[in-house]
Computed example of a mutant assay.
Amino acid sequence: MLDVSDPRAHRCVNADCVNTPGSYSCVCHDGFAKEGDSHTCTDIDECRSLNTNDCDPLHGICTNTPGSYNCSCQTGCYTTDNGRTCEDLNECMTGNGGCERLCVNTKGSYYCQCGVAYVLTEDGHSCEELDECAAEHVCEQMCVDKVGYYDCSCGDLFTLNLDGTTCEHINECENGHKCDEHGDCVNTEGSYECSCHPGYKLDKDHGKRHCRNIDECAIDNGNCTHLCVDTPGSFYCACPLGMVLDKDMCTCLDIDECTENLAKCSVNAYCNNTSPGYDCICNTGYSGDGIMCGDMDECLLGVDRCNHNCHNTPGSYTCSCRQGYLLGPDGHTC
Rank of each mutant, 00 (worst) to 15 (best):
L253P: 01
C41I: 07
C250Y: 11
C321N: 08
C237T: 07
G164I: 00
H308N: 02
D230M: 12
G294M: 15
H197W: 14
D43C: 04
T165A: 05
L160N: 04
L241K: 03
T274A: 11
T165V: 10
N175I: 09
Y270M: 01
D151Y: 08
T94G: 05
V4G: 03
S23P: 00
C77R: 10
H210G: 01
A269K: 01
D6E: 10
C319W: 02
N273H: 01
C167R: 07
E216M: 14
C252A: 09
S191M: 11
L300F: 14
S25M: 09
T65A: 14
H125I: 13
E91N: 04
N90W: 03
N213P: 12
D56R: 00
E87Q: 01
N187R: 05
I219R: 13
C217S: 13
F158W: 13
G207M: 09
G36A: 14
C280P: 07
D205S: 14
D256K: 01
A9L: 02
G83D: 00
C114H: 03
D6C: 10
N14R: 03
V18A: 07
C321A: 06
C71H: 03
D246P: 08
C139V: 05
T106R: 02
C133M: 06
C143I: 01
G285E: 05
N82D: 06
L326H: 10
E193A: 15
D54T: 09
N187T: 04
T225G: 10
S126C: 03
D156E: 14
I281K: 14
C211Q: 02
G108E: 05
C228T: 06
T225P: 11
G183V: 03
H226S: 06
G294D: 13
G207I: 05
K146H: 11
G183M: 04
I214Q: 13
A134N: 11
E91H: 09
S72E: 14
L50K: 11
G294S: 15
L253Q: 12
D205A: 12
P198W: 13
E140S: 06
G315K: 02
C211F: 00
D163H: 02
N64W: 02
L50D: 06
